[in-house]
Simulated scan of single mutants.
Amino acid sequence: MEARIDEQQAVIARLEAELAHSRKVFDRASEAAQIGVWECELADSSLRWTDVVYDIFELPRGSALDRGRTLECYPQATREALERIRSKAIEDRSGFCLDAEIVTMRGNRRWIRITASVECVDGEPVRIFGMKQDITAEKTAALRLRTMAEFDSLTGLANRSRFQAVIGGVAAEGVEAEGVAASAVGAVMLIDLDRFKDVNDDLGHIVGDDCLKEVGRRLALLRSRSDCVARIGGDEFAVVFGPQTAHAAALRLGAAVVRLMERPILVAGRRIHIGASVGIAFSQDGRGDALYGHADTALYAAKAAGRGTVRVFDGKVGDAVSPSGKGESRG
């Protein structure tokens, strides 16, 4: 009998050692992957976290947890979305997955991926549990890739791809552009720098790049008044206005751009004078897919009129008018 008891105790000890080793491996893997496990009792909202979740929220490991305090780490919109899908999952006895931004207890911003499943007893939900993973690096990399894909590295403005997505409402991959509707365009303004080629030819491309950076800073002032400000070519820029922008307001902004570009640019102790011509096309039906060509017609007329001017497409291919109504033929 004693031998059998000793044998059973040896088996139990071996199993306990294996379990402890498994937990140690799991903890190390979870920490390496920045994945922690959490549970919430639905009866009293009490929480249980593994160490990695404490680390993600920058709370001391093992400290007392309060769900209400934890929810304060989420921005209001995210908190409302989390509560909504959590309630739905509990109602449906299912689960959910959500990427959410948090502000840790130390004030640092992080992105986490929450996965959850609802556990039921006799058909009634009793607890919700799952994993939380720190995906800040993943989100940062995705944002960097999006920035590279949609923004001009020299000026910081949107690039041609983003501009085309905005005026067409469809990205190059054929999916709807984020936050963009095909009927959301009121006007397109094209801006072409005058005498910029002379700067590159006479002073070099480094000075030319510095000039473009300053142009980008000046045009960035239009961001609050428009849907998109982009560099779409070497010295060509574009501004997209929503349908709420009045024609008169767009014309005033076009004239303001001309005046803004008349100011000298200081580069390496030099005062460089360039200038800009502006062409504007207004949408008749709220769609922007044809406006680029119309605005280009108006821009051509502005340059033909002596540069440093604003011209508006009048609705007929090949013609544009000045804001005062004087016609300009593309010739």
Rank of each mutant, 00 (worst) to 15 (best):
A302N: 13
T297E: 14
F313P: 02
I265N: 02
L42N: 09
V258D: 04
H273C: 11
A305M: 11
P125L: 10
E236F: 02
A295D: 11
A248F: 02
L15P: 00
S161F: 06
P75H: 06
P243G: 00
A116L: 05
I35A: 08
S30R: 02
E7V: 00
G62L: 03
A177R: 11
L260W: 03
S283G: 15
E124C: 10
G286W: 13
D198S: 14
T245S: 12
F151Q: 15
T115Q: 13
A238K: 01
K197R: 12
F26C: 00
L221N: 08
M261F: 05
H294V: 05
A187G: 06
A13V: 01
L15F: 04
T147H: 15
G62P: 00
A43M: 02
E150C: 11
R271H: 11
N200V: 11
R106A: 01
I191R: 07
S63H: 01
Q9L: 06
L19H: 02
I35S: 04
K139W: 05
I114K: 05
R144W: 02
A276M: 11
S324M: 15
G216V: 07
F129N: 04
L82W: 09
D27E: 12
I112P: 01
N159Y: 04
D319C: 09
V199P: 10
A64S: 10
H205Y: 09
A81I: 08
S283R: 12
L145D: 06
Y292C: 04
T136Y: 07
S153N: 13
A77H: 12
M131T: 15
R195I: 01
C40G: 03
L65M: 03
R160Q: 15
G204T: 08
I35W: 00
V25Y: 04
H205T: 01
E138S: 06
G107C: 06
R225M: 04
H21Q: 06
E262A: 09
L266C: 08
E119S: 13
E124N: 13
V278W: 07
T136N: 08
L145Q: 08
I35C: 08
T104S: 01
Q9D: 03
V240H: 02
D122T: 09
T309P: 01
K197Y: 07
L260Y: 00
